[in-house]
């Protein structure tokens, strides 16, 4: 590429990047003094606690259930792998609001599992379990598909060599596969985290209470307007962005090394 064309391509990429980052400039928009009265602050801080604690629990479940499934899929034949990937794509592709409504029906009195849960006195709406399970549904596909890609990237010959050196399959996984895939797994988890912590459409149907940050932002926007939304919005961005951003940058740096 000539120097002139290279310069134009770089300028074009910079313009597009600026356009994508432009919405962040709204954090400095002149909308008047931000509102952080007790009336706004207390539910906002409660929503931060709800989002952080319950999303963390959801992520533990996603990792504990999703990692073995990813390890299994990574070893499958390509035909079988297609079946699992198709299944995992369903919750990813479902519109969030539709997922929330289906979830409420399936785990409510109209669904088989819901009736069973009710029989044991477990309700799955507007409570912490409903919040966590919704997030698990929303995030699991992202994590498992990302984890499969991370595990695929570990050369199979290294695993076979480790086995020939006397390590059982479980020890090969923990001593070779996991350490070599850890950055890819971190990226997969960070995507799952962002997807779960930012989920609104499904959670607003299944768990309006306890309100997480997205629902509380919506409530504040409806009740008090933009000045009341901004402080919680900054906290929301601070919680959601840095971890996955860092994981991606590190992963890119490593793959470019």
């Amino acid at each position: 590429m000539s120097e002139g064309r290279s310069w134009m391509a770089r300028a074009g990429a910079a313009l597009l990047a600026l356009a994508l980052l432009y919405p962040l400039s709204a954090l400095f928009a002149r909308i008047g003094a931000w509102q952080w009265s007790a009336q706004v602050r207390e539910p906002a801080l409660a929503s931060v606690r709800v989002s952080l604690v319950l999303t963390a629990i959801a992520m533990v479940i996603v990792v504990v259930l999703g990692t073995p499934m990813a390890a299994y899929i990574a070893r499958c034949s390509s035909k079988e792998r297609l079946v699992w990937q198709a299944a995992l794509l369903v919750p990813i592709l479902l519109p969030p609001l539709a997922l929330g409504i289906l979830f409420t029906l399936a785990f409510g009195p109209f669904g088989g599992v819901g009736r069973l849960l009710q029989h044991y006195g477990v309700a799955m709406t507007n409570n912490a379990p409903a919040f966590v399970v919704t997030q698990v549904y929303v995030a699991m596909g992202y994590y498992v598909l990302g984890a499969v890609a991370a595990l695929d990237a570990v050369p199979s010959m290294l695993q076979k060599q480790a086995a020939l050196l006397g390590l059982t399959p479980a020890r090969v996984f923990f001593r070779v596969t996991l350490p070599l895939a850890r950055l890819g797994l971190a990226v997969a988890l960070s995507i799952a985290w962002v997807r779960a912590v930012g989920e609104f459409g499904a959670v607003v149907v299944t768990a309006y209470y306890p309100s997480g940050m997205p629902v509380q932002l919506w409530v504040d926007l409806q009740s008090y307007g933009l000045p009341a939304v901004m402080p919680l919005l900054v906290i929301f961005l601070a919680v959601a962005l840095p971890l996955p951003w860092l994981a991606h940058v590190l992963a890119q740096r490593r793959s470019n090394a």
Binding site: L158, A162, L167, L180
Partner: peptide, 28 residues
């Protein structure tokens, strides 16, 4: 594989890149 008392060395020695030379050698 882990029950086979066999040493196998290929053109590509497949060292474990996350470990030191010492840890590679004592790996098994």
């Amino acid at each position: 594989l882990h029950r086979r008392p066999i040493g196998y060395l290929t053109q590509e020695p497949s060292l474990f890149p996350h470990l030191s030379v010492r840890d590679n050698i004592t790996f098994g």
